[in-house]
Write a protein that binds this DNA or RNA. Structure first.
Lengths: 177, 177
DNA sequence: CGATATTTGATATGGTCCATAACAATTATC
DNA sequence: GATAATTGTTATGGACCATATCAAATATCG
């Protein structure tokens, strides 16, 4: 039984019916707002990808509310920790962030004393990036929060094996699509 | 965040060494300006989700270049075709689009004669949405392009079974995460 | 009935993210 | 040493998202 695929083409305007008729021949929910049919949409890769991404980011922000870290900020801290001594261009481009847009992001992290810009002695044009002690501490706490409150949720939802399979497939899509 | 589609420029920086890097042992690409270590980033759900989504959207736009349809526009056409006679609020909210932002989107589709707003006789506040003949034709061509040039690419990359598993997991994440 | 509240489409507006151009300082190249 | 390229930065515009607000139409309720 397909919910309410009533109207075909011009089902609405033909009748002279003034009003008052609402075609009540469907098992409806409570308020009866008649849910729409998603149809092929629910099979569209881009559609489901985008919605999943929004949900995940939303959850990430909630998990990190106490640390006030966005996904982008978290990724910068992770990358700088793993690659200390790199300059802004290197970190930004690895994350797919354009250099101009990376400035404000770094300004934020630096103003919170999580990350430091250090003039390179080799090339005085560039700024070497490093985590401050506070930055390292915050990142450690962030990792713990992400692992226990965020990524763990995926296990609860999909199971360990499926979680890994999902990440692997997404990585493949991200790099080879 | 993180991620944009700008290609890496891989500034040739022929190794030499202004300073000792501890790059341990990683298979590097050719030019290799010392690729950074992604580390835990490549395991982060949000990170890989976002990158995959950008790649997929980018590919979608390329596939639809001849029809000039964005993912959002395509989803509107699909939903209106499947649910003719619904009003703007119903279509927009189903897609997670806020009513104010839906107006310009519809203005565009209507100006291209793909979709029509029709004043409802039952409720003269609302606009009933329907596809025009041209809209139906364009959508049919769009579906074909998406199937052959876009979704098919997933099969080539993951295989039929994995493709379906990926979509299913993403749907689950989108609705239950 | 009529006063009030609600809904619908629309406008205006602000925020965030993304992309390009341009600039000063520094370095590389020839 | 003149010119080109790179680095961080600013300025700016576009796309997308969110809120407040409005007029018209409808619903609700005394």
């Amino acid at each position: 039984m397909t919910v309410s695929k009533t109207a075909e083409k011009s089902s609405e305007k033909s009748g002279e019916a003034t009003k008052g008729r609402k075609d009540a021949s469907e098992p409806q929910g409570p308020g009866s707002a008649e849910a729409l049919q998603l149809g092929e949409l629910s099979e569209q890769l881009g559609y489901v990808l985008k919605r999943a991404q929004l949900k995940v980011f939303e959850n990430f922000l909630r998990c990190m509310a106490s640390l006030q870290l966005t996904p982008a900020q978290f990724s910068v801290l992770l990358l700088v920790e793993k690659n200390p001594g790199r300059n802004q261009t290197e970190i930004a481009s690895t994350l797919g962030i354009l250099r101009p847009n990376f400035v404000a992001l770094l300004d934020n992290l630096e103003s919170r004393d999580l990350c430091a810009r250090i003039r390179s002695t080799n090339d005085r044009r560039s700024h070497i990036l490093m985590l401050t002690d506070k930055g390292k501490a915050v990142l450690a706490r962030a990792k713990k929060l992400v692992a226990t409150k965020h990524e763990a949720r995926l296990n609860d939802l999909l199971g360990q094996a499926n979680r890994e399979a999902l990440i692997a497939m997404l990585s493949k899509v991200a790099s080879e699509f």
